[in-house]
Amino acid sequence: MPSPRRRPLLVPVLLCALAVLAARPTDGTDGDGGPGTALGPQVARLYEEAATATRQYEDGRRSAEEQRAKALEYERLLDGQRQKTGALREDLGRIARAQYRSGGGLPLTARMLLADDPEEMMRGQRAVSRAHQAVDRAVGENLRAEARLAADEARARSAWQTLEKRNADLARLKKKIEGKLEAARSRLEGRADSSVAAGSCPGAVRLDQPDINADRPWVAPVETYELSASFGSGGSRWANRHTGQDFAVPVGTPVRAAGAGRVLKVSCGGAFGIQVVVQHAGGYYTQYAHLAAVAVDQGDRVGAGQWIGQSGTTGNSTGPHLHFEVRVTPETGSALDPVPWLSARGVPLS
C-alpha cells in the first residue's frame, strides 16, 4: 500500500504528462535523418513511457483500494457508533420509565410529604438525576463521534471515487501508448528483416542511455524477461546443442552490455541475424543476437548496463527474443553456460 502522503495530488500532473507523451508523433522520423532513422529510439522511448504509465496506473489502483478500504472501515465504525448511541438512548428511556413508575409523575413536594423517608427519597432522586445526566452526556458524545466518522467516511469515499475516475483516464492513456508501441515495434521488425534480407546491416542508431549504476560491474543483458531456451538444450533449430541462454522479450526491448568492454563485432545475416559481440577483460566475450537494431559501432567502448541494441527476431528465430552467449573466444564453439557465469558475478537469473 502507498503511504498516506498526498499521493492523489500527483495524478493530475501525471495525466497531463502522459497526455503529452501519448500525443507525440510516431511516424518514425527525426529532424534530419529522413524517414525511419529514429525508429529504434522511438521504440525505446515508448517502452519507457509505457512502463511509466503502467507503474503509475498500478500506484493509482493501490491508492484507490486504500481509500476504498478506509471508506469501508469508517462505514463499519459508524454503524457501531450508531448502535452504541441507540443503546444509550434506550438506557435513557428505561431511566425515565422507571422514574415515572416510582412516582416521578408527582410533584417533588408531594412525593416528599408522602415518602416514609424523605431523606432517602432525595438521595434516590439525585442518583436518578445523575444517571440521567450521564446518559445524556454519553448520547451527546456519541452523536458528535457519529458526525466525525460520517465526515471521514464521506472524504474517503470521495477520494476513492475521484481516484477511480482518474485511473480510468490513465488506463486509456496507457492503452494508447501501448498501441503506438506495438505499431512502432512492427515497423522496426519489418525494417530489420528487410536489411538482413538485402545483406546490408543497419547502421548504429544511438539511444538515450539510462542511468547506469557504476557499482554494478555486471548486469543481465535485458532488464525484464522470461528465460526460454537454455544452454545445452536440444532442438531442430540448432545443428548440435543450444549455445547460449535465450531471453523472451518483445521486439525493440533495449539490450544492455552485460559488462564493460569494447565492441568487437557488429554484423548481420546467418543464423544469428543482427548481432553484437563485446570483448571483456579476463578473456571473455559476450554475444547478443537476433537483434532488430544496434546502437553501437565496432570499436566503441561500452559500460555495464549501457544500451547497445534492441531485441528482435532476425536470423534463425521462431519469435522475439535475445540470444545471449558467453565465450572464451570471439567465435562460435567456445561458449560457456551464461547462467552460472553471470551468477558467479553477482547476477542471478530467474
Rank of each mutant, 00 (worst) to 15 (best):
L322E: 06
T85C: 05
G86I: 02
R97A: 15
L10H: 03
G269C: 06
G28R: 02
F272C: 09
E73L: 12
A127R: 09
A281T: 07
H242F: 03
A64P: 02
L188V: 05
Q279V: 03
R262S: 12
Y288V: 09
R148K: 08
V326Q: 00
H290C: 04
L72Q: 13
G309I: 01
T54Q: 13
A50F: 02
R172E: 14
K180G: 12
P330I: 13
G203P: 13
I177E: 00
A271R: 11
G234C: 05
I95L: 15
G203D: 13
D297M: 08
V347E: 06
D136N: 12
T286R: 01
H242V: 07
A344R: 14
D27T: 11
A38E: 08
G28C: 03
V128W: 04
L72M: 10
L143E: 14
G273P: 01
D246L: 02
A171P: 04
P8K: 07
P2E: 10
G309C: 05
D152F: 10
A145P: 00
F247G: 03
K174H: 15
V135H: 04
H321N: 06
G199V: 03
C16D: 04
A134P: 03
K265H: 11
S200T: 14
P340T: 08
G103Q: 07
R45D: 11
V263R: 00
V196K: 00
G235W: 03
A98W: 08
Q287K: 10
Q245T: 06
T332W: 15
